[in-house]
């Protein structure tokens, strides 16, 4: 396979390893990166872009610690091929703050004591974010379903669900 005959992907070869050049938006900023074919989105974010808020808990899409938003939808970044994010929009917990102010979900997690060891927290918040984008006033059951892919060993989820409920109420109050 030589360069140029590769569809629309630009390939470079560095010491025998083929890299793909991609361009994506991360937390609102345009980023360029060279990724390997079987590189995962989580590796791109953590190792190349320094976004270590994205945690790896299982590497198999089962625990949700690595959840980020891709075009507004929650995905496990440990099972998304990095090259497939070319041209897409990624949001991590680092991109939630606006003008130095915490997102209402982050603040609710603090206020409702929804954080213990904190390892699942960034992923949990991103799943909550995806939910509230689609459904600003979810029921407790809808919150549970939205967080079903995020495992937490510390909290038993109760205070997390309370926090998402509180965030939804606060969003509702702002809109009124």
């Amino acid at each position: 396979m030589n360069e140029g005959s590769n569809g629309n992907k630009e390939l470079t070869m560095i010491v025998g390893v083929i890299f793909l050049k991609i361009e994506l938006k991360v937390n609102g900023k345009l980023r360029r990166a060279e990724v390997e074919a079987s590189e995962r989105l989580i590796d791109l974010l953590r190792q190349k872009l320094g976004l270590v808020s994205v945690k790896e808990g299982c590497g198999a899409g089962e625990c949700g610690a690595c959840t980020v938003l891709m075009d507004g939808e929650a995905v496990c970044s440990c099972v998304v091929p990095a090259f497939q994010t070319d041209g897409h929009d990624i949001l991590t917990v680092d991109g939630l703050e606006e003008n130095g102010e915490l997102d209402v979900i982050q603040q609710s997690f603090i206020d409702c004591d929804a954080v213990q060891c904190g390892f699942c927290t960034p992923g949990m918040i991103m799943s909550a974010k995806a939910l509230l984008i689609k459904n600003p006033s979810p029921s407790r059951e809808e919150i549970r379903t939205a967080l079903a892919g995020n495992i937490c060993r510390c909290t038993g989820y109760t205070q997390i669900i309370n926090a998402v409920e509180t965030a939804a109420e606060r969003i509702g109050e702002c809109r009124r």
Binding site: M1, A37, S38, A60, V79, V80, F83, Q84
Partner: peptide
């Protein structure tokens, strides 16, 4: 890519040709 990554990560053969269907 979910199952593909879990299956092939770290042991992608040198002869493999990948097609991104997205």
């Amino acid at each position: 890519g979910t199952d593909w990554l879990i299956k092939t990560r770290g042991n992608l053969s040198e002869e493999a040709v990948l097609f991104d269907l997205s």
